[in-house]
Every structure is written in structure tokens, then in C-alpha cells.
Amino acid sequence: MGFKKYSLLGWSDGGITAMIAAARNPELIKKMVVWGSNAFVSQDDLKLYNMVRDVSKWSARMRQPMEEVYGVQAFAKIWEDWVDGIAQFANRPEGSICMELLPLISCPTLIIHGEKDPMVPSFHPHYLHKNIKGSRLHLIPEGKHNLHLRYAEEFNKLVEDFLEE
């Protein structure tokens, strides 16, 4: 597209992708914002993932938008496959997804996290903040995994201010 530098925003697995891209291509990345992301899979994470494996037990509000996109049976299969796939990282040293890459991230980074995120426990954003040099951590006390939707105004202001600095 002709851009020499660009900023990355990544939610959840998209945040993992952004961190990997920022670590491997520091000359291309101006700034990065990640939320609901992690760099490793712990035993606590595995318990959480297995608790939400069966999408039929999810609330309709959480399940229906995905079922409308993928179909009821396809979404259930896609989600089970995701749980199985992410669980495999627990077999790597320290459960690393991209832990070893975090020190290579040199762009200004904003980490946003909902303190009530049921999918990504609060130790993850603190780990990212500690291991990404010069990063900032902003916690949203009532935020959950989809904080960018529920707290869109606050989230958008945070991101916009950060990117415009």
C-alpha cells in the first residue's frame, strides 16, 4: 500500500499477531496498541479455555453474533479447534507464544486491559508491560474481553490520544 511506517492495533489473538510483527519488523512499526492479549499460556489459562470450550453453555448475547457469521455448528467447531490449538502452547517452555520476542519490541506501546476480562487474567498485561520496554499500561476496572465495544468512547479516546502524541 506504499506506507513506510504504520501503527498496529490488536485485540486478543490480533494483539499477539501485532506483537510478533512489531518484534520482527521494528523499522516498520510506528506505534502499537494491544488489548486482551497474552504472550504465553499458563495452566490457569488452560482451565479458563476449557471452561468456555462448549459454546452451547455461553450466553446467547455472546454466542449469537458469532453463530450468525459462521453458523451454529461451524462456530462450535471453530471454537473447539481454537481451544485445542491455543492449548498446545502450554507444551512449549513456559507456555510461550511470543515471550522471547517482547524485548525486541521498540515502538511505543499501549497495553489496555479490562480488569474483569474472563479470558485473559490480569497477570498477562502486567507481564507484557514489564517485558515491552517503555510500554504503558491502562487498566479499565469494569472492562471485560470486549472492552473496546462496551467502553468504546473511553477506548477510542485512549487510542486516539496515544496515536496522536
Rank of each mutant, 00 (worst) to 15 (best):
F3T: 14
K4V: 11
K4G: 12
S7L: 03
W11E: 07
W11K: 10
S12Q: 02
S12K: 02
D13Q: 08
D13A: 11
G15W: 02
G15N: 05
G15E: 00
I16K: 07
T17I: 15
M19Q: 14
I20T: 15
I20W: 03
I20H: 06
I20A: 14
R24V: 06
E27N: 15
E27I: 04
L28E: 12
K30Q: 15
K31T: 10
M32R: 10
G36C: 02
S37M: 01
A39R: 04
A39I: 07
F40V: 07
S42T: 15
S42G: 09
Q43M: 04
Q43N: 11
D44T: 12
D44M: 02
D45K: 06
M51W: 00
V52L: 08
V52G: 10
R53P: 06
R53C: 09
D54F: 02
V55C: 10
S56M: 01
K57V: 03
W58F: 07
W58L: 09
R61K: 11
R63E: 03
P65I: 05
E68V: 06
V69L: 14
V69K: 13
Y70A: 14
Y70L: 12
Y70P: 06
V72W: 00
V72Y: 03
Q73V: 02
Q73G: 10
A74M: 09
F75L: 11
F75W: 15
A76C: 05
A76W: 00
A76M: 03
K77S: 14
I78M: 08
I78A: 13
W79V: 10
W82V: 14
W82E: 08
W82N: 13
W82K: 08
V83C: 05
D84H: 03
D84C: 06
D84A: 06
G85D: 06
G85W: 00
I86F: 02
A87N: 08
A87Q: 07
Q88R: 11
A90E: 04
N91P: 00
R92I: 01
R92E: 12
G95A: 06
S96P: 09
S96E: 11
L101W: 09
L101Y: 13
L101T: 15
L104A: 15
L104G: 10
S106A: 08
C107I: 07
P108Y: 02
P108A: 06
L110K: 11
L110G: 13
I111C: 07
I111L: 04
I112Y: 01
E115I: 03
E115P: 00
E115W: 00
E115A: 14
K116M: 13
K116Q: 15
D117I: 08
P121D: 07
S122K: 08
F123P: 12
F123R: 13
H124M: 09
H124T: 14
P125I: 06
H126V: 13
H126D: 10
H126G: 04
Y127A: 14
H129C: 10
K130N: 12
N131W: 01
G134Q: 05
S135V: 03
S135R: 01
H138S: 09
H138I: 11
I140V: 15
I140A: 09
E142N: 11
G143M: 01
K144V: 07
K144E: 12
H145G: 09
H145W: 03
H145T: 12
L147N: 06
L147D: 03
L149E: 11
R150G: 05
R150W: 01
Y151T: 12
A152R: 12
F155K: 14
N156C: 10
K157R: 15
L158D: 02
V159W: 00
D161M: 04
F162T: 13
L163N: 09
L163A: 12
E164W: 01
